[in-house]
Design a protein around this nucleic acid. Structure first.
Lengths: 165, 165
DNA sequence: ATACTTGCAAATGTTTTGCAACCAA
DNA sequence: TTGGTTGCAAAACATTTGCAAGTAT
């Protein structure tokens, strides 16, 4: 779009959000600022409920309603700042999609842990697959299910909790 | 597990389901038979609602309740007969996971079409990735999002429907 | 001033569940 | 017989939405 490829480099999430909103004729409100701020204050994966909790803990600043948070998550996704990475317990799990390298996840079915990994070849293969189908790829979501190292280990080395009953 | 690799070959989904149920101390009821039958009568992807519709259309045989259908989908998944492949419009999309080669999907965000593709390398890469993380992989779900050939084509070559109003 | 936004409560829509009547083994 | 099963209605839950009051620009 731009003739200056580096125009977006080092732009903070909040700034990028503001730009996005501007192009859509939307406004940077106090609530949206608070949310983008909180969302990018940590790299952890999160779901809507967790974000709601985190925002509730903020001492200063105003309270943000549940509705607004859901509405903002949708906007942040549209802005390319967040992406949904998985679903756990019927909840959508979100993560940063801006300023963070492309990656996929191993999902432990026992403890729910999300382990990130990056693999160049997968992207290349998908490019090729998409091309061969005349498909215009915009992104992908790859969930690898199974058991993480800890959870797949038989409970032998594990310290026994004896006589607890 | 078995020393006869071909022991399961040519076993019908219904039979495999019965075996699974037996090992769990569960029963092959009339309803479960109807459902596994209907589910494997077509290779199309489907969601719970569609299956409910299809079952409602059956002339002969008894009606199966919505609850039982949901309960059965979970069982069929556990039995390795079905797997969830995507989510569309807040609904889980299912497909056969038995007697059907492993594959993934291109998902058109405009028309919702699911295009299957198979790529050997992806499985190999995932095996390797999982191994390097000490992760016991049990399966994966890869959704490639974007626009299918038809939907990404600008509406110029498309036959115009003129004067229809 | 003029839309766009928010918070609230109510609605949505899918999937789950309690329970009494049923039924496969 | 004896549990597992079903259907029904109600519940559960995450997420969405209508609307009046508030607020960026």
């Amino acid at each position: 779009m731009s003739n200056l490829a580096n125009v977006d480099v080092a732009v903070t999430p909040a700034e990028k959000y503001r730009e996005f909103l501007a192009t859509k004729g939307l406004r940077m409100t106090r609530e949206r600022a608070i949310i983008v701020d909180e969302v990018f204050s940590s790299h952890e994966h999160f779901d809507a409920e967790q974000l709601i909790q985190r925002l509730a803990l903020r001492k200063n600043g105003r309270r943000v309603s549940r509705s607004t948070i859901y509405r903002s998550l949708a906007l942040l996704e549209e802005a390319g700042l967040l992406r949904k990475v998985a679903r756990q317990d019927d909840r959508e799990i979100w993560e940063h999609d801006y300023g963070y390298p492309q990656h996929d996840h191993l999902i432990c079915e026992r403890c729910g842990r999300l382990i990130e990994f990056h693999n160049e070849s997968i992207s290349e293969i998908l490019d090729e697959v998409a091309r061969s189908h005349g498909f215009r790829m915009e992104g992908h979501r790859l969930e690898v299910h199974g058991l993480c190292d800890d959870c797949s280990r038989p409970p032998k080395t594990r310290p026994k909790k004896l006589n607890l009953l």
